[in-house]
Design a protein around this nucleic acid. Structure first.
Lengths: 354, 354
DNA sequence: CTGTTAGCGCGTTCAT
DNA sequence: ATGAACGCGCTAACAG
């Protein structure tokens, strides 16, 4: 049986949703200014494209009403959220701070905001990624690279600008701003060997990236053809649990000396670890750098100012952050990005410990 | 003249907007599952309220299509963004890291995400606040309190849950999870005076909050009725520019000794500064703690493991973050929050430097 | 330069 | 337990 179409007057239309309490909308502003909502929108977003008159009236109405833009609605309509998500293994560590800081600064001045999520060191959890992508960010910055082929696949099919950082890989998901851990390991090994060190050690985290660094360091140090000055006789590797801190560094040196008593140089994957190694050496009366050379990583703010001053590998994380932000913004605004892979390099800052 | 209504067939209707390329919507999922969009929505958000059959079909369709929720649209419709914004004076400093970490963790497990913005130490910039509020966060967490009455006003009229942290004030904007810098200053002063110190010094940042701490410390230390053990003879105050780091601490001690050569105790507003003071003292052959006592702030991860181990004020920032997150979430879900102000207290961790 | 129309993708509200 | 209709607040696309 066909349903009788209800008479218009009798139509049981659902009661309109209650308006938000204090919510001033762009319509309210437009009404007060005596213009169309669209003109109000333009006055706020592309002021160059409206007349002085309208611009002024809208601005006045905004001031009077205390209007605050609803970016959610704008994002839905324009398909651009002006949000960028950063996925960082560990927010608390000092390592990625400058990166985050640079990201926030560069994005902020371009009108974008940062969603910060913590990914852990292992495989990127699927539900975290979903939660992040659900916000429809205009771009994704990863502190690190995506290890699994599956994760790469997912990110690529997400169809948004992605910048991996903090590493160099042959096949990035999309864009890449980083440096080569292998090169660094090689350079540090060469530096130490040239200094006459033969019993080397490496201290780093337990996660995959740190393990890769360890391997690079070992093979560079033992490589008989690497340098004219010779090569290492032995390289001990110690892993420490995250977060890498001073305590871990102290413990690691203790273990290294137990296993390889004549160790004369240690390369640490973080300045905090290096400070720990130095401290433990001091506690044991080991002279630095005479008996033991120590090289850190990161050139954290304290590295230059502790005693002895830390020799370390310096990375320009601020440049990484700024470049990553620029890449994301360029792509989000539809402009092409010239270089899709950037190696920001590194430098060894020679101070007192090596 | 009245406009002729165009014949329906001739109506020049604008071409519908192009659909997003890869955008799978909930409708697509529903269609594939053979249910209404509404049922698909329920299957994802309140699975308890749909039949097993529908639930399964929807889940299958989601898996097949690779559907990713559009939280923007959801937020617009439901008026709940599941976003929480954190405003931090300085992202790069180590001070607020544990707080941010705890926030991300607690919010994440409740299904919320974090927008991180950097506010600087001064007055909260109006356009930053607008940008943040434009995302319609379900709550705001401030690292610090709002100094200006005007800022308080704005936040209150924004009508969202606000948690201030890291301080205690008489009239918070809304909720407050912090500790009393005055109490800490008093406790440290008492501690040092009881230890026989009489020529005190304070090292802190240049911003208003640090200045308040300095004043509290000075008045507590000089207060003749404060402790049975006596009171300080003099208190020097040194300000350092942000960010407070080891270098600043070293320089500050140098200036203090120039002005007040017999200084026998220094209270630093950050462990990094304290490490700098200790380092500079060592460089000058000043024995710690015999000639100079040093107290830091924060109990950062290295404090216990450097030599000498830092005596410091410990704050449970993880608890602050977790509590703040809980408050926001409770309020966002419409549940009342029992206590609106929480003092998490502090403790003085006595190690080797005082 | 300005206004009109339509719809972004979802959840609320009501009805069944 | 399920579905239909509507609109959250804004901007793209077009017409003038």
């Amino acid at each position: 049986m066909k349903k009788t179409p209800p008479a218009p007057a009798a139509a049981p239309r659902p009661r309109p949703r209650a308006r938000a309490e204090g919510g001033v909308t762009l319509q309210d502003v437009a009404r007060l200014a005596g213009v169309s909502p669209m003109s109000a929108s333009r006055a706020l977003n592309t002021p160059a494209r409206v007349s002085q008159d309208i611009l002024q009236r809208v601005q006045e109405a905004v001031a009077r009403t205390g209007y605050v833009r609803n970016s959610l609605a704008g994002a839905l309509a324009s398909r651009r959220s002006r949000l960028v998500a950063a996925l960082v293994p560990n927010v608390a560590g000092p390592v990625f701070q400058d990166l985050i800081q640079a990201l926030i600064a560069a994005l902020g001045s371009a009108g974008y905001q940062l969603i910060l999520a913590q990914s852990g060191y292992g495989v990127l959890p699927d539900d975290l990624l979903n939660a992040v992508l659900g916000q429809r960010p205009d771009g994704l910055v990863l502190a690190g690279v995506v290890p699994s082929a599956q994760g790469r696949q997912r990110l690529q099919s997400a169809g948004l600008p992605v910048v991996e950082t903090w590493d160099m890989v042959a096949e990035p998901v999309d864009m890449l701003v980083g440096f080569s851990h292998e090169q660094i390991a090689g350079a540090v090994a060469t530096h130490l060997i040239a200094d006459g060190r033969r019993q080397l050690a490496f201290v780093g985290g337990e996660h995959a990236r740190a393990q890769r660094r360890a391997r690079s360091f070992v093979s560079a140090a033992l490589d008989k053809r690497r340098t004219a000055r010779g090569h290492a006789d032995a390289v001990a590797v110690e892993s420490v649990p995250a977060p890498a801190d001073v305590r871990s560094g102290r413990d690691a040196l203790a273990r290294i000396l137990a296993r390889q008593p004549k160790t004369d140089a240690v390369f640490c994957s973080s300045d905090l670890l290096a400070l720990g190694v130095v401290t433990e050496a001091q506690a044991r009366g080991i002279r630095i750098p005479e008996q033991l050379a120590v090289v850190g990583f990161g050139d954290l703010s304290f590295a230059a100012d502790v005693l002895p001053a830390l020799t370390t590998v310096r990375i320009d994380s601020a440049a990484i952050g700024a470049t990553a932000a620029r890449f994301i913004v360029e792509r989000a605004e539809g402009r092409p990005v010239a270089a899709t892979t950037v190696d920001v390099g590194f430098s060894i800052v020679t101070r007192d410990t090596a």
